[in-house]
């Protein structure tokens, strides 16, 4: 998946563009990633409740 905000080496190497991270050029994907991170945190918290008390059973 092409996620680079740069096409040319000169653009990348100049450092003038600032942000170099993946999908910087497509903000909706970055927002989707953040949403997915949030969903995983919720899954983790629910799992933490679910795995509690296994020693008693």
């Amino acid at each position: 998946m092409n996620s680079s905000p740069f096409r040319l080496w000169e653009e990348f190497a100049s450092g003038g563009a600032g942000a170099i991270y993946t999908f910087f050029g497509t903000p909706w994907i970055v927002k989707g990633i953040c949403l997915l991170v949030f969903a995983l945190i919720v899954w983790f918290l629910l799992s933490a409740y679910r795995f509690e008390g296994r020693g008693r059973t």
Partner: peptide, 16 residues
């Protein structure tokens, strides 16, 4: 392999 360019959220997903 790609931590120099990953968005931190993407880093979390890859780590997960």
């Amino acid at each position: 392999s790609g931590l120099d360019v990953y968005h931190p959220g993407l880093g979390y997903l890859i780590g997960f």
